[in-house]
């Protein structure tokens, strides 16, 4: 109910703003809706959203898997931490644009280059979060597992992984929002399709209804994925925690 209300407030302020600044700069909601419907009818909207989502899924999975593995290693092994730390600081502070442009120059305007560039942007934050999580592991529980001779794989699954879960969830959360932002830039600069590409085209043609149609449907998809996928998953993962009454 509250969500609906805030959505209505958003629509109303949009409409009022478009009346104030004029249709040329900010079209009213019906014009944007019409552009979205037209794109949906031709199938272009779903195709481009699908392509972008596929890139997000691939880059996100790649960055999370690699980032978690590297972060765990750096949290466990001092040598790995000391070797990896300068690289980590470099990657953390490297602007996304630099990575994307360099990837396209070195690997060509290819799908692989785009996905690698997005993944590299997300990787260091996943590494840092998982490294912190690994450092915070409770040695008392690992001692317990060792004394009771719990096999390594079982101990990892039941003792280590649940302790890392909040860190993995945090890395996924912040990582996903980062990937949502970067994927459009990568598409704008070097892909012939996807939401980012379409927004680039709309920008060049100054087609603001089209631009907003893509932006808002994309935002809606992100919102749906967050509420339908990410939040229920977190709730399930942490159901053992004491609940506030």
């Amino acid at each position: 109910m509250l969500r609906l209300l805030s959505f209505v407030v958003f629509l109303a302020s949009w409409w009022i703003a478009s009346l104030v600044v004029g249709d040329a700069k900010l079209p009213a909601p019906p014009a944007v809706l019409a552009a979205a419907v037209a794109e949906a009818r031709s199938g272009a909207l779903f195709f481009n959203l699908g392509v972008t989502l596929a890139r997000v899924a691939l880059a996100f999975t790649l960055a999370m898997t690699l980032g978690a593995a590297i972060g765990y290693l750096m949290g466990r092994v001092r040598l790995a931490d000391r070797l990896g730390d300068p690289w980590l600081i470099l990657l953390l502070n490297l602007p996304a644009l630099v990575v994307i442009v360099l990837a396209y120059i070195w690997a060509g305007l290819t799908e692989a280059a785009a996905i690698a560039a997005i993944a590299i942007n997300k990787l260091p934050t996943a590494v840092v979060t998982l490294r912190e999580g690994t450092r915070a592991l409770d040695p008392a529980l690992e001692e317990m597992a060792a004394i009771f001779a719990v096999p390594r794989s079982r101990a990892f699954r039941h003792v280590i992984l649940p302790q890392l879960a909040p860190y993995i969830a945090a890395a996924a959360r912040s990582g996903l929002s980062l990937v949502w932002k970067i994927v459009l830039v990568a598409e704008l600069l070097g892909r012939p399709n996807g939401v980012g590409f379409e927004i680039g085209v709309a920008f060049q043609l100054f087609d603001i209804p089209l631009l907003l149609a893509y932006s808002l449907t994309f935002a809606a998809v992100v919102l749906v994925i967050e509420t339908v996928l990410v939040q229920p998953l977190e709730a399930r993962l942490f159901r053992w925690r004491p609940h506030a009454a």
Partner: peptide
Amino acid sequence: FQEPRLLPWR
């Protein structure tokens, strides 16, 4: 152990 050392998530 002195403290029970149970896994809180199991």
